[in-house]
Design a protein around this nucleic acid. Structure first.
Length: 977
DNA sequence: GTGGTCTCCTA
DNA sequence: GTAGGAGACCACA
């Protein structure tokens, strides 16, 4: 920005409310979506951009930005917790417009700026200052008095609804003080809407008069005793501190660490097609026409954009998006006033209609195209740009996206319109050296070169099934797919627990068709890699999958809105794809030498143990065979059997063997020890080195996003969520998880997160108080239950209370608790009874949860994620009881899972903002995150990580219990944890 | 080779 | 008592 440049700063959030109340209601004709503020906004911005000379501003902007509030919580809440506390929820028909106006901003190709922790006004103040310092001018498009303190010779305001400019003279005229005294004036008068206290009895007139007389607030307050009017003097003295707090609330922060520099706000010529696509989606016909004329664009040739609609509790933040009801088919014209609007179609009706329409549709495999030249590929790219939608799948040589080589890419741009681009298919007659490639395939680099802009194009939604796989694969090729949707995750949000989410299952369930199986495509050789499959079959298989994904998306996406699950998908699922992909891509270093040494030691120990076991048993047998072991112990040696397994065998579980050992039997003791050693060896020290990726030298686990009922992740190949920790021997395995040289591992874990969630959801005063006070929660429980003082409490008493606390989370039963504690069932029953007497809220919560689940078939987390347990209505008592326990557990486990997801989603940006872009999140273990950081960044990183994790529920939910995170850094995972 | 069973590792 | 993944064994193809 340079001398003479002019920056326009539009107060987007302020405009929304003002336009909503000032403009007549307007609904989109095709679906009744309320859009009056959106139209007002678009008209206003268009006018500012095109006809600034005709408005009171009289200048044409060179720089432009639209600023929004991010959320209601800012640094002001720390100064004054009640700040904006009496803010009410926005009206129902305004909520979707928050997101739409952000979309509109993007359609205008204008920067859309918001920042967590700051209000729009602070960002505006910062940019206005920056513009002035750069020698330019700024116009703040707003009429909010809170912004008037910013007015100066280089900064003015413009009220777009009255077409009126506000400069220094206008501020003085209206308020009786110059702009620089507006802060003091507002500090005195307060503001009931924002809940700023001010001084009672002082309004704008008196305030202006006082400031005129005394100069400024500090002088006034220090000389308040001089004031003659009794009541006014008393109030000024009594409320002096409130006035000072008010001043800090009112004073705008003009040094926000903004992300976008001033130069990034430079105005570009309007992108006619992009803007028109949005305006058409909104069905603003006259503005569409005006924009088309001004930009020389043929509006008729442009398809309406796919526009997502925000709605729900978080809609005034960047949270939550809901798809518009209908995507490309909305051809209706006219900006319809409500009285002319036809009966609105509900999301439910539309979703049902689309679902019904999709079933049994033809799949014509002969129409799938095999793309073998760039011209054809470009044609498909153009199609995707037109529709704004692209379903895709990557075909590769491996199920591990960190090792897989790309064989081809399948695309779909409409139902039935799908193609396959073979890239690296091998000749069937290949020799042992790998043979030649099939002729006529495009080069990977060329194809990715053509696709990259499309995969990055913000106007084209990329749709995948388990998109994480393709995302990570292409990330390895330097491509970050965005924006995107994932049919698997949509299905998971819709039906976690009750249905499968694989492509075949979804296809059968929603489309009524079974896709060509991989085995069929590979002519029965299920093990051959995809590059060995001939092109014709490969095309059918891959293109059909892309086709199915496209059709599934058309059916599934509207279901989210219809079932009120958009926020779950948008806030908890979709963002995880890029977050998890990056984590998997980073991997973690595992020290081969350490594991190899341990394996050797374990081998020796195990061998010695085996000899001793054979001696004690009197024969050699397969110790690892529960069947053979059972025969030795309970047959040959005649030991008393304990529990039976499902298949009627005597159980040889550790618990049974421990009991026998406790009775003095030597062999069971040795078996238990042997099992521990061989378990550690086979599952960990032997297996882990095999997962070290030869290219990266690190271990890259795979996190499943849609495999649990509760919302937890799962980890596999290898599972890094079950690395031993409980025994000293096992724990040593963690020393093999190391930081790279010059770096440290940081482990940050939530303390008692599930019990905290329980205290919140079940609303248990004693638990909440104990957490607020930072007490030992198990000791507190014991003290409450058994009347034992916390100090000097016997360890056994605390242990029992701890078991009960965990039992509650797991949906307690007397049987389970008795088992866990090794006490009679009657005693366990008595404990539970006592617990419920002390904490009746827990019993209420459990009963309420079960009843809710029986009625609805699902339960919900704090954030609205659903877990389905239809079998809670089973007539089989044990099935029913099992589902009841699961239903009690799911909201607790699931809410905790949601919280850490939210932390993970925010983490990278938070670290980046703190200048810690070199701190990398590597692993998640349900309540723990593991990072790798350069030595010198560790001390700065820990507080950032802790802040993000402890604040992860906010602003979606205000937990009534604090979250606590412990974090530590070391060279290896054992010492860091 | 595949799938079921048993056992055991984690939160 | 909740939620997972994996290795070993073993019966079946």
């Amino acid at each position: 920005m340079k001398n003479g440049d002019h920056l326009f700063l539009v107060d987007g959030s302020g405009y929304i409310f003002r336009a909503y109340h000032a403009l007549p209601p307007l609904n989109r004709k095709s679906d009744g979506l309320p859009v009056s503020a959106v139209l007002g906004f678009c008209n206003m911005v268009w006018k500012l951009l095109k006809d600034a000379r005709d408005t009171a501003v009289g200048v044409t902007p060179t720089h432009f930005a639209v600023i929004f509030d991010y959320s209601s919580k800012t640094f002001r809440n720390e100064i004054f917790p009640e700040y904006k506390a009496n803010r009410t929820e926005p009206p129902e028909d305004l909520i979707p417009q928050f997101g739409l106006i952000r979309e509109a901003t993007r359609a205008f190709d204008l920067p859309c700026i918001e920042m967590e922790g700051y209000e729009a006004d602070d960002l505006i103040a910062t940019y206005a200052r920056l513009a002035t310092e750069a020698g330019g001018d700024a116009t703040i498009v707003s009429s909010d008095k809170d912004l008037m303190q910013l007015v100066r010779p280089t900064v003015s305001m413009y009220d777009p609804m009255k077409d009126r400019q506000i400069g220094i003279a206008e501020v003085i005229e209206k308020w009786g003080v110059p702009p620089e005294k507006m802060i003091d004036l507002q500090a005195l008068t307060g503001d009931s809407i924002d809940n700023i206290p001010g001084v009672p009895g002082i309004g704008p007139k008196t305030a202006a008069q006082l400031l005129e007389e005394y100069g400024d607030l500090d002088t006034l307050l220090s000389r308040a005793h001089e004031i003659r009017q009794n009541k006014r003097r008393e109030n000024l003295i009594e409320y002096a501190e409130k006035a000072r707090i008010s001043r800090e609330l009112v004073r705008l922060k003009d040094d926000v660490p903004v992300e976008l520099p001033l130069d990034a706000l430079a105005l570009n010529p309007p992108n006619g097609p992009k803007l028109i696509a949005f305006l058409k989606a909104m069905e603003f016909s006259s503005l569409t026409r005006r924009v088309a004329e001004a930009t020389g664009t043929d509006a008729a040739a442009i398809e309406p954009a796919y526009v997502e609609v925000q709605k729900g509790a978080e809609a005034h933040g960047p949270d939550l998006t809901i798809p518009a009801t209908g995507t490309g088919e909305l051809g209706a014209e006219g900006e319809v006033a409500p009285e002319r609007a036809e009966e609105t179609e509900t999301p439910e009706k539309l979703a049902r209609k689309l679902a019904e329409a999709a079933v049994g549709k033809q799949f014509d495999r002969s129409r799938y195209v095999c793309i073998r030249d760039l011209e054809a590929l470009n044609q498909w790219v153009a199609e995707a740009r037109e529709t704004g939608l692209l379903a895709l799948t990557a075909e590769t040589t491996s199920s591990d996206p960190m090792q897989a080589e790309l064989c081809g890419i399948a695309l779909a741009t409409a139902p039935g319109r799908a193609a396959y681009v073979p890239l690296a298919h091998k000749d069937g007659s290949a020799d042992l050296l790998g043979g030649g490639l099939v002729d006529g395939q495009l080069a990977i680099a060329d194809v990715l070169g053509v696709l990259q802009p499309l995969l990055h194009d913000s106007a084209v939604l990329k749709i995948g099934q388990n998109l994480k796989y393709a995302w990570l694969l292409l990330y390895r090729h330097g491509i970050e797919i965005a924006p995107y949707d994932d049919t698997m995750l949509i299905s998971y949000v819709l039906e976690a627990g009750s249905q499968a989410h694989g492509l075949d299952a979804l296809s059968q369930r929603w489309l009524g068709t079974t896709p060509l199986s991989y085995t069929e495509a590979a002519k029965g050789r299920a093990k051959t890699t995809f590059d060995m499959i001939e092109l014709e079959r490969a095309t059918i298989y891959a293109a059909e999958n892309a086709d199915i994904i496209f059709r599934l998306w058309k059916v599934l996406k509207p279901q989210l809105a219809a079932r009120g699950l958009v926020s779950v998908y948008e806030r908890l699922e979709r963002p995880m794809i890029s977050v998890i992909s990056r984590m998997e891509h980073r991997g973690i270093t595992v020290d081969r030498q350490i594991l190899s040494r341990m394996s050797g030691e374990f081998a020796q120990t195990a061998a010695a143990m085996e000899e001793e076991i054979y001696r004690l048993a009197g024969e050699r047998f397969t110790i690892g065979s529960p069947k053979q072991l059972g025969e030795i112990l309970f047959g040959k040696m005649g030991l008393p059997g304990g529990a039976k397994t499902k298949s009627g065998q005597w159980s040889t579980s550790a618990q049974v063997l421990e009991e026998l050992a406790a009775e003095g039997h030597e062999l069971p003791r040795r078996i238990v020890d042997w099992r521990q050693v061989t378990k550690l060896k086979s599952t960990y020290t032997d297996a882990l080195p095999g997962y070290i990726n030869p290219d990266t030298g690190r271990v890259h686990t795979s996190y499943a996003l849609a495999s649990t009922t509760t919302g937890r992740l799962s980890s596999s190949e290898p599972n890094l969520q079950n690395i031993p920790i409980r025994t000293a021997e096992g724990r040593k395995i963690r020393t093999a998880f190391v930081a790279a040289p010059g770096r440290k591992l940081i482990s940050a874990d939530y303390s008692q997160i599930e019990l905290r969630v329980l205290a919140h959801v079940a609303d248990i005063p004693q638990l909440k108080q104990a957490f607020a006070d930072g007490l030992d929660i198990h000791a507190m429980t014991a003290s409450e239950m058994f009347g034992v003082p916390i100090e000097g409490m016997p360890a056994e008493v605390r242990r029992r209370a701890k078991a009960i606390n965990f039992g509650i989370i797991y949906g307690i039963s007397a049987f389970g608790l008795a088992n866990q504690l090794g006490i009679p069932r009657e005693e366990a029953s008595a404990y539970i009874k006592r617990y419920f007497e002390r904490f009746p809220g827990i019993r209420d919560y459990m009963e309420h949860t079960k009843a809710f689940c029986r009625e609805h078939g699902y339960v919900e987390t704090v954030f609205g994620r659903r877990a389905y347990y239809p079998e809670i209505r089973s007539s089989n008592p044990s099935v029913r009881a099992f589902n009841e326990r699961a239903a009690i557990n799911a909201p607790i486990q699931g809410s905790a899972a949601d919280i850490i997801r939210r932390a993970m989603i925010r983490m990278d940006a938070a670290l980046q903002d703190a200048g810690l872009g070199n701190v990398q999140m590597l692993l998640q273990v349900h309540d723990e995150l593991v990072f790798e950081a350069p030595d010198e960044a560790v001390e700065r990183a820990i507080p950032v990580i802790r802040t993000v994790m402890e604040g992860a529920a906010w602003p979606a939910r205000a937990l009534s219990v604090p979250l606590k995170v412990d974090a530590r850094a070391a060279d290896n995972w054992d010492e860091a944890h």
